[in-house]
Simulated assay, not measured.
Amino acid sequence: MNTVLGPVPAEELGVVSVHEALLSVVPGAEHAYDVTIDRAEIFETLAAKLKDFRAHGGGTIVDSTGMFHGRDVRLYETLSRTTGVHIVASTGQGPEEKLGGYFLTPQTNPPTPWPTEKFADLFTREVTEGMVVPRVERRGAAGLVATTATAEGMTATDESLFRGAARAALNTGVAVSIRYGADAVHDLDVVLDEKLPADRVAVGGLDREDAVAAGAPLEVARRGAYAVLDHVGTEDGDHLTDAERAALVADLVQGGFGHRILLSSNATGVAKGHPGNDLPYSHVLTAFVPLLKERGLGDEDVRRILVDNPRDLLSVR
């Protein structure tokens, strides 16, 4: 299992939050006149949130933001040493609108997407050689390939990204985390088309109202991938309420898919250039697990979802 401090036995991860953000910076925001990047202040804020997570039984945070959105490997190393929380950083990119022009090969007319193989090589090297750190070259292996599709539906560039992510996973043994665009099952099938085993894929955003209406959580689990309800604590009209999420988890467990559920809050530790989701990383443990218990889930069910499932996903194999 790749953490920012090096390989860790998977059984030591403990309770894992699989879709969170530590430092999230909109590309270019650091140059805005009204944005300050005070590393000492950022460190103190994140350390307090990670210590709170650990105090409530948390063991591992996965920063699933990928490349170019504020990922700071040296900061994460220090935070992990200071707080005792394992941190898994990710490679990957997306959606298309968040890519720099460099990745759209603008020398062609019209611009054409980077080929799948180039994305695969980029992501593979971040796992095998270490994540790129400006002016330092590389350090720390990525533990996950995370990519996102365009909300209105997967574009040609998004498809390149997804296929590249799948090939990087096949090359390295790490898993893929996808956030779908308009159709979760379609986007999962693109990754599976690369012959990546379904149990190496986590599909995020499945607590969105549109995903639930389309039956996507059950269909994703049926295909053998992990159904990720990753906005626990967000009740904004586009997502289920926590009570509805708990009912969905209970239905999946009763249907025999308890081994295919993952939970997270999509919380943002520190956001720059955009409004973050200012939930504590401990929200799943403090507020959501009691709802699951009310729905009849036992300690073994909860442990499977919070400890065993993410351990199996994040194991390098």
Results as ranks from 00 to 15, higher is better:
269 G>P: 00
115 P>M: 08
150 T>K: 02
105 T>G: 06
3 T>R: 09
35 V>I: 14
47 A>T: 08
220 V>A: 07
145 V>Q: 00
9 P>C: 04
209 E>H: 06
297 L>R: 04
10 A>H: 00
53 F>I: 04
125 R>W: 06
67 M>Q: 13
202 A>S: 15
254 Q>R: 15
188 L>R: 11
182 A>C: 09
39 R>F: 08
154 M>I: 15
89 A>N: 08
38 D>E: 14
176 V>L: 04
138 R>V: 14
266 N>S: 09
204 G>S: 12
254 Q>V: 08
42 I>A: 08
118 K>A: 13
288 F>I: 12
96 E>P: 01
200 R>Q: 14
159 E>V: 05
59 G>D: 02
251 D>A: 13
201 V>L: 00
48 A>L: 05
254 Q>D: 13
84 G>L: 04
52 D>G: 07
150 T>G: 06
76 Y>Q: 02
47 A>H: 11
290 P>K: 14
224 G>Q: 12
261 I>G: 05
257 F>Y: 15
72 D>I: 03
91 T>W: 00
275 P>S: 05
114 W>N: 02
7 P>F: 00
137 E>A: 13
92 G>I: 06
131 M>S: 03
131 M>W: 06
131 M>Y: 02
294 E>L: 14
142 A>H: 03
103 F>W: 11
26 V>E: 15
156 A>T: 12
100 G>D: 10
9 P>L: 10
75 L>M: 15
18 V>Q: 01
315 S>C: 03
161 L>K: 06
135 R>E: 08
213 A>K: 15
137 E>Y: 13
124 T>W: 10
212 V>G: 14
58 G>Y: 02
52 D>W: 03
84 G>S: 01
87 I>Q: 03
249 V>N: 06
198 A>W: 07
157 T>V: 11
137 E>V: 10
170 L>G: 11
111 P>F: 14
174 V>Y: 06
276 G>R: 06
220 V>D: 12
45 T>S: 07
45 T>R: 15
102 Y>R: 12
102 Y>C: 08
163 R>V: 09
95 P>Y: 08
57 G>E: 06
28 G>D: 00
133 V>T: 05
130 G>M: 08
226 Y>V: 03
180 Y>P: 09
135 R>C: 08
243 A>D: 14
106 P>S: 11
176 V>T: 07
227 A>P: 13
21 A>N: 05
155 T>W: 13
212 V>W: 15
46 L>S: 03
257 F>K: 05
285 L>M: 12
257 F>R: 07
220 V>W: 05
35 V>Y: 09
263 L>A: 09
140 G>I: 07
242 D>C: 14
66 G>D: 03
41 E>L: 12
12 E>P: 01
80 S>E: 05
190 V>W: 01
244 E>Y: 10
309 N>Y: 13
292 L>H: 06
299 D>Y: 05
156 A>Q: 15
20 E>D: 02
90 S>G: 10
303 R>K: 11
83 T>E: 03
181 G>T: 04
163 R>E: 10
127 V>P: 03
167 R>E: 07
273 G>W: 00
150 T>Y: 08
312 D>F: 09
11 E>S: 14
245 R>M: 05
279 L>E: 01
122 L>E: 01
141 A>E: 13
213 A>V: 09
237 G>M: 00
209 E>Q: 15
258 G>W: 10
301 D>E: 15
36 T>K: 06
154 M>T: 15
49 K>R: 02
114 W>G: 02
213 A>G: 04
87 I>F: 02
223 R>L: 11
272 K>F: 10
